[in-house]
């Protein structure tokens, strides 16, 4: 608005626009490095290989959810229903396994639940023209209720050890969930940066009307983002079920907020049109590292929450200030 003398940030932004995204990612990575350095100085255990792997593992659930959320947010939407979608997938997948259905079939069924939830959200948003916030707020209650009704509110126990071995195993010392996150991140990065759907997601989020006039299949694009988000919620659910050895219908409470936070720290704009897979990944790790470090320092949970809030707001302020606009 008011042009102050020496405010040359915008023009710089123009010249380096092509590198802006990676510049933004570099900022997120720098933020992570600062957190790592600070905690390393405060507590010696922090910067050890086992603890770093621990952080990655602890961040993996949020990372999976947040990666799907990023695509939804870039397309101009939001998915508040990820937690209950995960819960519904978890209890259905788990009861099938307990009933003796082959593990891979049960996993596919759980994935199917996530896809259906995403499809339901996506169709209401894209074809009925409802607002994503409200649709997925409805989904948040709806899917949670289905999970509770289905189980009568009780956890599903007796998860087969073969399944638990899948999610609790390691490959070359790296926990499987971390590898799963890495694969998902790679696939979504390709999707966003190297496919027409990625261009469409960015265009729809950047300017929906212009995208429609330019012939972008707007509705299908939106549905696709919600379906991806729903299926990633299922994958997160499977990881958690394997870790806990039980499926609770109450899992996933407030997951959506952590996921939005990770995406926002990573540079996603809730206005749509902007966001980064790498950024979100780092954002999730920042949140994980923060909690891990504070726990190592024996900081009370209440203060951990405080720190999380401060980090999110500080990240947004820095983002705003460096963008110059």
């Amino acid at each position: 608005m008011t042009q102050t003398p020496g405010a040359d940030a915008p023009s710089q932004g123009l010249n380096f626009f092509r590198f802006n995204v990676s510049l933004r990612d570099a900022g997120t990575i720098l933020g992570l490095l600062i957190i790592v350095v600070v905690f390393s100085l405060l507590t010696p255990v922090f910067l050890t290989a086992p603890n770093l792997i621990n952080i990655l593992q602890q961040s993996s659930l949020n990372a999976v959810i947040a990666l799907g959320m990023t695509l939804v947010i870039i397309s101009g939407g939001i998915d508040l229903s990820v937690g209950p979608t995960a819960a519904l997938s978890a209890v259905i997948g788990a009861t099938l396994m307990v009933a003796g259905v082959p593990i891979y079939v049960a996993i596919l069924a759980a994935l199917g639940v996530g896809i259906l939830c995403g499809l339901f959200n996506g169709v209401l948003v894209a074809y009925a023209g409802l607002q994503p916030f409200i649709v997925t707020l409805g989904g948040l209650s709806l899917y949670r209720a289905l999970a509770l009704i289905y189980t009568g509110g009780n956890p599903v126990f007796g998860i087969p050890p073969e399944f638990r071995a899948l999610t609790n195993g390691t490959l070359l010392g790296i926990p499987n969930p971390v590898i799963i996150v890495a694969i998902i991140a790679l696939l979504l990065w390709i999707l966003l940066n190297k496919t027409p759907l990625g261009e469409y997601i960015l265009a729809v989020g950047g300017n929906e009307e212009a995208a429609r006039i330019a012939g972008v299949p707007v509705a299908k694009t939106k549905v696709a983002t919600f379906v991806i988000s729903g299926s990633l919620a299922s994958i997160a659910a499977m990881i958690l079920v394997g870790r806990l050895g039980a499926a609770e219908p109450t899992i996933g409470n407030l997951w959506e907020l952590d996921a939005i936070a990770a995406a926002a720290i990573g540079g996603a704009s809730l206005m749509g049109g902007k966001g980064s897979i790498v950024g979100t990944l780092i954002g999730a790790i920042i949140l994980g590292a923060l909690r891990n470090g504070l726990t190592l320092m024996n900081v009370q949970a209440f203060y951990q929450l405080l720190a999380t809030g401060i980090i999110i707001i500080a990240a947004m302020l820095i983002d705003r200030a460096t963008r110059g606009k």
Partner: peptide, 13 residues
């Protein structure tokens, strides 16, 4: 409002 996706490149648009 209707023509361009302003943050995207000319080529993408």
């Amino acid at each position: 409002r209707e023509g361009i996706v302003h943050a995207r490149s000319v080529a993408s648009n």
